[in-house]
């Protein structure tokens, strides 16, 4: 709970994406259909139209202010609604004014432009209502409580952790560093921009199994393997997110802005249950960097990873399929 030394609105602004279009290199504009954005996921996927190259995107927005913003006796003047497009990876901050739909209306709308060359993965959109309060200009009187995410490459508007899965034969890969791992079926690499799973296609039949979508036992084994890989991924991303934390001068850790931050917010409630995520991060960071408690935490990290990977469900389905198969053999 934050306290403010002035009056403000106590409910959040509701922000919605209403349209998205891409400007292509030849100067034409492609209007993306509504499958490009998802209200429940609060995500826009600019990769839906499968354009290899585009120059910029224009995102249409509408915002609804909470009740009281337009009240005649409101203690502020000069109300404006600003939308911020920010990207922690490229340090972009673009701010635009929305326009009030009609005098006295609490509906505001406008567009924000996003340049393709200024983003790598995901940018965030948020809105703030600002006004002059007690002679102080630029006071924030309400904001959105959850950001929208604009993903410049995704072809589906899904939130959550994005994972890069690449299938190559390790032994003869042109990526010589993979050759050192030729005797294992997969490895996880968390050093990149998004975590990646490298699948070793030298293991015969492995990629067929991973691509299996024909039902039957292959499917169940496939699910089981995927959940096993996911467990590895979740464990690895958690460790690498925690191992790479920035620390404030007073020693408290800062939430990373990229996928590492998403991973921590997602997993910490299971790793340090009962604590608010900020406090959970401090505790876990203390355990890792301090003298005691890191070893004991491993079980909880593993637990959090297994839960996210859906290992329980995959296992029980594989077991049931095996039972059915055995029954069929006997009959």
């Amino acid at each position: 709970m934050k306290f403010y030394p002035y009056k403000r609105l106590n409910r959040p602004i509701a922000l919605r994406v209403t349209s998205a279009s891409l400007k292509l290199p030849d100067g034409t504009r492609d209007h993306l259909d509504t499958s490009a954005f998802s209200v429940p996921q609060r995500t826009v996927a600019l990769g839906v139209a499968q354009h290899d190259a585009w120059v910029s995107a224009r995102i249409g927005l509408s915002a609804t202010l909470p009740p009281g913003a337009m009240a005649d006796d409101a203690p502020w003047s000069g109300l404006r609604v600003l939308v911020m497009l920010t990207d922690g990876e490229t340090n972009v901050r673009r701010v635009v004014d929305l326009r009030q739909d009609a005098p006295g209306s609490k509906e505001w709308s406008g567009t924000v432009e996003l340049l393709r060359d200024e983003h790598v993965g995901r940018a965030s959109l948020s809105a703030q209502a600002v006004a002059t309060v007690d002679d102080v200009p630029g006071r924030s009187i309400a904001e959105t409580d959850e950001d929208w995410t604009v993903d410049v490459t995704a072809d589906e508007p899904l939130g959550g952790l994005r994972l890069d899965v690449k299938q190559v034969g390790f032994a003869r890969s042109s990526r010589a560093w993979l050759q050192a791992y030729a005797d294992v079926p997969w490895i996880v690499d968390t050093s990149g921009r998004v975590p990646a799973v490298w699948v070793n296609t030298d293991v015969e039949g492995f990629s067929d199994l991973l691509d299996a979508e024909n039902g039957g036992i292959e499917n169940k084994v496939h699910e089981l393997l995927v959940s096993q890989m996911s467990t590895d991924v979740w464990t690895a991303v958690f460790h690498s997110a925690l191992g790479d934390l920035e620390v404030e001068p007073d020693g408290s850790p800062v939430f990373p802005t990229d996928w590492r931050g998403e991973v921590l917010r997602e997993m910490l409630p299971d790793v340090a249950p009962g604590a608010h995520v900020e406090e959970a991060l401090r505790r876990v960071h203390r355990r890792r960097t301090g003298d005691a408690g890191w070893v004991e935490l491993q079980t909880r990290i593993h637990y959090a990873a297994v839960r996210r990977a859906g290992a329980g469900k995959a296992l029980s389905q594989a077991l049931r399929a095996l039972q059915q198969l055995n029954r069929g053999d006997k009959a």
Binding site: Y4, Y6, L82, V95, R139, S140
Partner: peptide, 11 residues
Amino acid sequence: VTVVYDAFAPD
């Protein structure tokens, strides 16, 4: 946290 600099110092 309480003042939006963009409001009076736009880029």
